[in-house]
Write a protein that binds this DNA or RNA. Structure first.
Lengths: 125, 125
DNA sequence: CTGCAGGCTGGAGTTCACTCCAGGTCAAGC
DNA sequence: GCTTGACCTGGAGTGAACTCCAGCCTGCAG
């Protein structure tokens, strides 16, 4: 029987889906951002649907500038179980505020950049 | 006579105004992001109004994620004279587009984070 | 049977952007 | 006259987040 392997992903497929490089996936596993990934008989990683979902969360946090150390904390809270919901909320809300600041900041500096562009246009003819 | 030194800034004042650290200012001068800064008799830097203005531009570009290498290119264009206006415009417009992408990206991922927060609220009671 | 793609490991190396350090100069206040 | 604080230099060190490497294995296409 071929793989109708219910929702199991090879490393290559996970790279494809998440945009993380293979090295990054191994690195994340090493440092504990991912729980130890399951293996097939040959010792190769086989990611579950859950693993991929968690990676999606990580991509989102990384993509908004959360440092690895804080993601690690989040990972630990998540592993610790349901009694950590409040802490996880606090962590994400704090991060959300930082994202908001980032956006405001970018918008503000973008105005300055656009002014500069307009100035250059005015003097460059 | 004390300093009515027309618009000249000590390193400390520039740190204060620009938010760059003293080490960063020296580093920027070393790598050529700043032209050689003028000195007083004792060999200490004295920044002009122009220097401070240029640093403001740099802060803006850095703050929006432009890598040093590209700021260096911008600095070179600026030094090269008025015939580089078009290239400078192109560079800044390209950067502006990247800033726009950054903002869109952040906003998009922020939605995911907020959904997660809402989910946690719903299960944490 | 051979070759190759796609994995594996532990550990070293890379990039970026600073940041720190030891040892020294100089001007001003006590 | 001495101390203090702001500043100087060249060069080394740092931290974050990967990224690369050598050497190995294994399953499958031709």
């Amino acid at each position: 029987m071929r793989s109708a392997d219910v929702s199991v992903y090879t490393p290559g497929q996970v790279v494809e889906e998440t945009g993380f490089s293979l090295d990054t996936l191994r690195y994340y596993e090493r440092i504990g951002l991912l729980e130890p990934i399951g293996r097939n008989a040959a010792g190769q990683r086989r990611f579950t649907q859950q693993d991929v979902g968690w990676l999606g969360m990580l991509r989102c946090l990384r993509g908004t500038g959360m440092p690895i150390a804080e993601m690690l904390r989040f990972a630990e809270l998540t592993r610790a179980g349901d009694h950590t919901f409040r802490e996880r909320i606090a962590l994400l809300e704090a991060h959300d505020r930082r994202v908001e600041e980032q956006v405001d900041n970018l918008r503000e500096q973008q105005v300055a950049i656009r002014n500069k562009i307009r100035y250059y246009h005015s003097v460059a003819g």
